[in-house]
Simulated assay, not measured.
Amino acid sequence: MKTDWKESSVDGFLERIIYKSLQSKNGHLDLFVRFLHGLCLESNQRLLVGLLGQTEISPETIQRVINNLKKMNSDEISPDRSINIFHCLMEMNHLSVHQEIQEFLKSENRSDKKLSEIQCSALAFMLQMSEEVLDELDLQKYNTSERGRQRLIPAVRNCRKARLMDCGLSEISCDYLAAALKSNPSHLRELDLKRNNLEDPDVKQLSDLQQSPDYRLETLRSVE
């Protein structure tokens, strides 16, 4: 790791380390990665100069780090892990994504606003952390890409009904859903997965949950 730091740029190092953390299934590196991104702030650099020696990260480098985070590809990255990208932006005091989602939630014409993947991660985080339980979460109402809708999956924890029809869900999406349903608390009682071209093995984890004390669904629709 020390060699990597010496031979690479700060933004390149941080990009590699966050990709490593996103591949983790249990998120054991999440806090460490947020801490490293927080070190980019000038105020934190001044506090740590006695420990690290003379350090200076240019505004251009910080902007590259922010850009790398915002465009990070979510292929094979779980929606829960993707939320840590949003946390890293917050650690760097880059509040624009958070402010954009706050404005989005206040707007009346939400379908007019196309959400990026990082905005979907921020929205998923804010919805699942809300004190108010949503009556229904319909991913089709959000103007975003298929990967963006997958990043919204963690929000099902804090809604009573999810209508996830026509969302291009896959077997791995069902894995994400199963993880969300196993979480405590999970308020989801009705889940609709129709018109996603899912085969029986794809929803096996969800079906297996019926035998688990963690299973709270009252209605599961997975076929026409």
Rank of each mutant, 00 (worst) to 15 (best):
residue 98 H to M: 09
residue 191 L to M: 13
residue 5 W to G: 00
residue 222 S to K: 08
residue 18 I to C: 04
residue 21 S to F: 07
residue 165 M to S: 15
residue 187 H to D: 00
residue 77 I to V: 13
residue 42 E to H: 11
residue 61 T to Y: 00
residue 191 L to V: 08
residue 4 D to A: 12
residue 70 K to M: 11
residue 189 R to C: 08
residue 144 T to F: 02
residue 82 S to N: 06
residue 146 E to D: 04
residue 98 H to A: 10
residue 169 L to H: 10
residue 44 N to H: 08
residue 109 N to G: 00
residue 126 M to P: 15
residue 53 G to K: 08
residue 74 S to I: 03
residue 48 L to K: 14
residue 44 N to M: 14
residue 206 L to P: 03
residue 51 L to G: 07
residue 187 H to G: 01
residue 56 E to A: 09
residue 182 K to M: 12
residue 147 R to A: 05
residue 139 L to M: 10
residue 214 D to I: 03
residue 64 R to F: 04
residue 176 Y to H: 11
residue 100 E to Q: 14
residue 75 D to H: 10
residue 66 I to K: 04
residue 119 Q to A: 04
residue 129 M to C: 05
residue 29 L to S: 11
residue 168 G to D: 04
residue 104 F to W: 07
residue 115 L to C: 02
residue 19 Y to E: 12
residue 100 E to K: 06
residue 161 K to C: 06
residue 23 Q to I: 05
residue 135 D to F: 11
residue 103 E to C: 09
residue 97 V to G: 03
residue 68 N to W: 06
residue 155 A to R: 05
residue 78 S to C: 05
residue 175 D to T: 05
residue 106 K to R: 05
residue 99 Q to L: 08
residue 68 N to L: 08
residue 7 E to T: 13
residue 211 Q to R: 08
residue 115 L to K: 02
residue 28 H to M: 06
residue 161 K to M: 05
residue 53 G to Q: 07
residue 191 L to E: 13
residue 98 H to P: 00
residue 114 K to P: 09
residue 155 A to W: 07
residue 68 N to A: 10
residue 8 S to C: 06
residue 183 S to C: 03
residue 106 K to Y: 01
residue 149 R to Q: 13
residue 223 V to I: 15
residue 164 L to F: 05
residue 148 G to H: 06
residue 78 S to D: 09
residue 100 E to T: 13
residue 26 N to T: 15
residue 80 D to W: 07
residue 69 L to I: 03
residue 120 C to K: 04
residue 193 L to V: 04
residue 112 D to N: 09
residue 30 D to Y: 12
residue 122 A to F: 00
residue 36 L to D: 10
residue 53 G to F: 04
residue 36 L to V: 11
residue 58 S to R: 13
residue 167 C to H: 04
residue 154 P to F: 02
residue 87 H to V: 11
residue 109 N to W: 01
residue 158 N to Q: 12
residue 172 I to K: 14
residue 165 M to P: 12
residue 185 P to V: 11
residue 96 S to R: 15
residue 3 T to F: 14
residue 171 E to H: 14
residue 132 E to D: 09
residue 178 A to G: 09
residue 71 K to N: 11
residue 187 H to Y: 14
residue 132 E to V: 15
residue 28 H to A: 15
residue 95 L to M: 15
residue 22 L to I: 12
residue 185 P to I: 10
residue 216 R to C: 10
residue 115 L to G: 00
residue 145 S to Q: 12
residue 173 S to Y: 07
residue 157 R to T: 14
residue 108 E to M: 03
residue 149 R to G: 13
residue 156 V to S: 02
residue 65 V to T: 03
residue 5 W to A: 13
residue 144 T to S: 06
residue 129 M to E: 15
residue 84 N to G: 07
residue 113 K to S: 06
residue 43 S to L: 07
residue 146 E to P: 07
residue 109 N to H: 01
residue 73 N to V: 15
residue 40 C to F: 10
residue 107 S to P: 00
residue 18 I to Y: 01
residue 61 T to M: 02
residue 218 E to T: 07
residue 61 T to H: 01
residue 201 P to T: 10
residue 203 V to G: 01
residue 102 Q to V: 04
residue 135 D to A: 13
residue 127 L to F: 12
residue 166 D to E: 14
residue 135 D to Q: 11
residue 211 Q to D: 12
residue 170 S to R: 15
residue 102 Q to R: 05
residue 62 I to Q: 06
residue 141 K to A: 09
residue 51 L to V: 12
residue 100 E to H: 10
residue 216 R to F: 02
residue 75 D to W: 02
residue 93 N to D: 14
residue 86 F to E: 07
residue 124 A to C: 05
residue 150 Q to W: 01
